[in-house]
């Protein structure tokens, strides 16, 4: 930060390249004061939350079906692997044709981006369940539901949480791209607008907001991980 401020003050870093921390803070303050930033934040968060919820629901459903039943694997895995191989941004034109340039395109794009990492990690975790513990479940004569609740889901949880973290990182990336391509509101809209008027300070504010949102979600997932995976720590030997 000090280096940045120093470089800006001495003119080594011209304001046309990037504003000084002081300028950026001032720009942020203006955006906060007039409610632009909070409004944009609400709009962008709404897109991400809807997209993430839809993507996670799809990934969980497809992941469980493909990970737990052989025919589900045969039916679902090839299309999912294909979806993974297609660059997400390549389908943007098609989505605009299908869904227009409204909210649904952004939400669906985020959902697709979110679905893939969680699906891949969840199916891998489900396939990796220890057969010795499955045998224990057999000898204890667990019902299907008990087996799912006490063996399958807890065993797959660490892998699923890794997938969740990757998925959420993807969610922010896709949000940025889809908001930059077309938006009438949201953080991407502010950034794009600022570009038109060469307001570098505001672009930096937008980027910092994205960064903070990314950090915040990562922190949340880490906390979830610590709580859900308590059993992994505390070894006495």
């Amino acid at each position: 930060m000090a280096t940045w401020q120093l470089a800006s003050s001495t003119g080594a870093l011209p304001a046309t390249t990037i504003g000084s921390p002081q300028d950026v803070t001032a720009a942020a303050w203006v955006l906060i004061e007039d409610g632009q930033l909070s409004h944009a934040l609400v709009v962008s968060l709404r897109r991400v939350v809807l997209g993430v919820l839809l993507g996670l629901a799809l990934a969980t459903f497809f992941g469980l079906v493909a990970g737990l039943s052989p025919w589900g694997d045969v039916l679902l895995d090839p299309p999912m692997q294909m979806a993974r191989a297609i660059p997400l941004y390549g389908v943007v034109p098609l989505f605009i044709v299908w869904f227009g340039i409204g909210e649904s395109t952004k939400v669906i794009l985020i959902a697709l981006g979110v679905m893939v990492p969680l699906y891949l990690n969840l199916t891998a975790a489900l396939r990796g369940i220890d057969p010795e513990l499955s045998e224990v479940a057999d000898t204890l004569r667990l019902t299907r539901w008990e087996r799912l609740r006490h063996l399958v889901l807890p065993a797959a949880l660490p892998g699923a949480l890794v997938g969740l973290r990757l998925s959420l990182a993807v969610a922010w990336l896709v949000l940025i791209v889809s908001e930059t391509i077309n938006a009438e509101s949201g953080i991407g809209f502010i950034v794009n607008n600022a570009r038109t008027f060469l307001q570098n300070d505001i672009i930096v504010v937008g980027l910092l907001t994205y960064a903070l949102l990314g950090l915040a979600t990562d922190y949340l997932v880490r906390r979830m991980e610590r709580r859900a995976l308590r059993w992994q720590g505390g070894a006495t030997r």
């Binding site: 010795e132 045998e135 224990v136 479940a137 204890l140 004569r141 667990l142 008990e146 807890p154 059993w231």
Partner: peptide, 19 residues
Amino acid sequence: FQDPRLFPWRSALDNVALG
């Protein structure tokens, strides 16, 4: 079994009470 084969994500009590 030769190895205890406990469910590592369940407490000792829950492992015994399982099913």
